[in-house]
């Protein structure tokens, strides 16, 4: 018991860090689902590409074990590089893998999404030769920069991840509720045809959702690299699964729900480890999902959908 209490603060911090990354990823799933009612299975792989691009940019600044520039500019250029590539990638996938199939059944886009995911994974495998790529996090964010409180070590990396994610989520929330694009997105997700009659170019809204979601995935990819300290071509799958679960947990199609789902999931994963062996952390995650789906099928913040006749 004493050991459990001693671990509690640290595990809460672990959970928040991981949860905020899940939340950023879940946003992408949720936005696309909300508008198109389709599951973008390639989203996890876009995130993986983002993390690899971040690594690539980092390598430009690292020579022989030292960083060539200050932390700030390095981190900003990593994020910038990742976001540019993933946004373009997300837009391209939408244009070539999904748009031509929009008129078909939902199943065809789902299969196309799986295909896009497999292509991204294999291209990444070939380019990285299957090797894990190490982020030299310690060169950019020194491991000495840490706060110790209540027996928990809060490293600067974690702090940055949590703060950046929360800032992004607030910005997203504001964008969805207050900007024209946000309104257009909500309108399109409620009824695409009606939105079109109102003069909204829904096709553009869809592209925007993909581009914004993929950009967020790019940021999440860089952050996961800094946090895990290494990335490889397979990380997209499990992270994608978790983020999708978070989106469902929070109520798929609901932006605030996705954020809440991500945080709940991250916390469940790391707090569950207090009582069960760490191998069971995925069991805990999916048990939470099942429990929520039984008790609240629409998710934590989702609205119940009336059965259409």
């Amino acid at each position: 018991m004493e050991q459990i209490l001693a671990q509690l603060p640290q595990q809460v911090i672990n959970g928040l860090t991981l949860g905020s990354i899940y939340a950023l990823l879940a946003l992408g799933y949720s936005m696309v689902y909300g508008i198109l009612r389709m599951l973008n299975f390639a989203h996890g792989d876009v995130f993986m590409v983002g993390s690899l691009i971040g690594w690539g940019v980092l390598q430009l600044f690292v020579r022989g074990g030292t960083a060539l520039a200050k932390s700030g500019p390095v981190l900003v250029s990593m994020v910038f590089g990742a976001v540019v590539v993933t946004s373009v990638l997300g837009g391209t996938i939408e244009r070539f893998a999904y748009r031509p199939l929009q008129k078909g059944s939902r199943l065809t886009t789902l299969i196309s999404a799986l295909g896009a995911s497999i292509i991204l994974q294999n291209v990444a495998m070939l380019l990285t030769q299957g090797r894990a790529k190490a982020y030299q996090t310690e060169l950019v964010i020194s491991s000495d920069w840490a706060i110790s409180a209540l027996g928990a070590t809060i490293s600067a990396t974690r702090l940055i991840i949590i703060c950046v994610s929360i800032a992004l989520m607030l910005a997203m929330d504001y964008a969805v509720t207050h900007t024209m694009l946000g309104k257009a997105m909500r309108a399109t997700s409620q009824d695409r045809e009606a939105a079109e009659y109102m003069g909204i170019r829904t096709q553009r809204v869809i592209s925007a959702a993909f581009i914004v979601g993929s950009g967020l995935a790019g940021i999440a990819g860089v952050m996961i690299g800094l946090y895990y300290t290494q990335v490889d071509f397979m990380i997209g799958f499990s992270a994608g699964m978790k983020a999708f679960t978070a989106a469902v947990l929070g109520g798929i199609g609901n932006v605030r729900g996705a954020m809440a789902g991500g945080l709940v999931l991250g916390l469940a994963e790391s707090l569950g480890v207090l009582f069960l062996a760490p191998v069971y952390k995925d069991v805990i995650v999916f048990s939470v999902l099942i429990a929520v789906l039984i008790l609240r099928p629409q998710g934590i913040l989702g609205k119940p959908v009336d059965e259409k006749v």
Binding site: Q7, Q10, Q11, N14, V273, P278
Partner: peptide, 10 residues
């Protein structure tokens, strides 16, 4: 696994 914080905390 890529995240070892849970077990390392233990």
């Amino acid at each position: 696994d890529r995240d070892f914080s849970p077990i390392l905390t233990r």
